[in-house]
Simulated assay, not measured.
Amino acid sequence: MSASPKLSMAFQLFDEANSEDPNTEIYKGEEFPKELLYAIRMTDTLSRFAPDASETLQLAARCQHICRWKIPRDAYEMNRVGYLRWREELKKFHVQKASEILAMVGYGHDVIQEVQLLLLKKQLRKNIDSQTLEDVVCLVFLQYYFEQFANKHSEEKVVEILQKTWGKMSADGQKAAVGLPISKKVAVLVKKAIS
């Protein structure tokens, strides 16, 4: 994937914002701000899954969770309604934060609007970039975060979440998911969910 000067500057500003995350994660012996690591994983996964990704898709992948910690899950009711409200507020917040940075870098209205559409998860299945972003989100979740999630929940819930995740993916995304480097435990759960 090629990087224009604007893209490089936007990545730098996204990363600076995510570097302020007080939550950290250890990866390969190094401590990272959690959302910075997530953003890097999104870009790395996109570059493998869709090496010819458009600039707007690259931007959306990098800022998918920008400053996510500022709207914590526990600020909303711990039920399905609260979860859905939290997700909607997060989407709006990510759009606002990303749009401010993109405008600062000098991107025009059309690019900003396209990134907004992608972050809002609009036109899944209809828009190839929206679907590719969703595939990458699912691949990152399965490779890096699913096992930790699975350890906290019942097998029934885990299988249900896996089935929903699988259903959001394209055939290419599902094919890539089968080839992910995952543990035997996760592989068994995936097989159970998709059989």
Rank of each mutant, 00 (worst) to 15 (best):
P5S: 15
K6F: 02
K6W: 01
A10V: 04
A10P: 04
F11W: 06
Q12F: 07
E16W: 09
E16H: 11
A17N: 03
N18Q: 13
S19G: 15
D21F: 06
N23Y: 06
E25N: 04
E25Q: 14
E31N: 02
P33S: 15
E35L: 02
Y38P: 01
A39N: 01
I40E: 04
R41C: 10
R41E: 01
M42A: 11
T43L: 05
S47F: 01
D52Y: 04
S54L: 03
S54W: 06
S54E: 08
S54D: 06
T56M: 00
T56W: 00
A61H: 01
C63E: 01
Q64G: 05
H65T: 01
W69F: 13
I71V: 13
P72I: 00
R73M: 13
E77N: 13
E77W: 14
E77K: 07
V81E: 08
G82Q: 02
L84K: 08
R87G: 03
E88V: 10
K91S: 13
K91N: 11
H94A: 08
K97H: 07
A98P: 00
A98D: 02
S99P: 03
E100M: 11
E100L: 01
I101K: 03
M104Y: 14
V105C: 06
H109T: 14
I112H: 07
Q113I: 11
L118M: 04
L118V: 03
L118P: 00
Q123L: 15
R125G: 12
K126E: 12
N127D: 12
I128K: 12
D129M: 00
S130Q: 00
S130K: 00
Q131C: 09
Q131H: 10
Q131A: 11
L139A: 08
V140H: 08
Y144N: 09
F146D: 02
Q148A: 15
F149L: 09
A150P: 10
A150R: 02
K152Q: 12
E155D: 11
E156V: 09
K164Y: 15
W166L: 05
G173A: 14
A176D: 03
A177Q: 10
I182T: 11
A187V: 07
V188A: 15
V188K: 15
L189C: 01
L189W: 03
K191P: 02
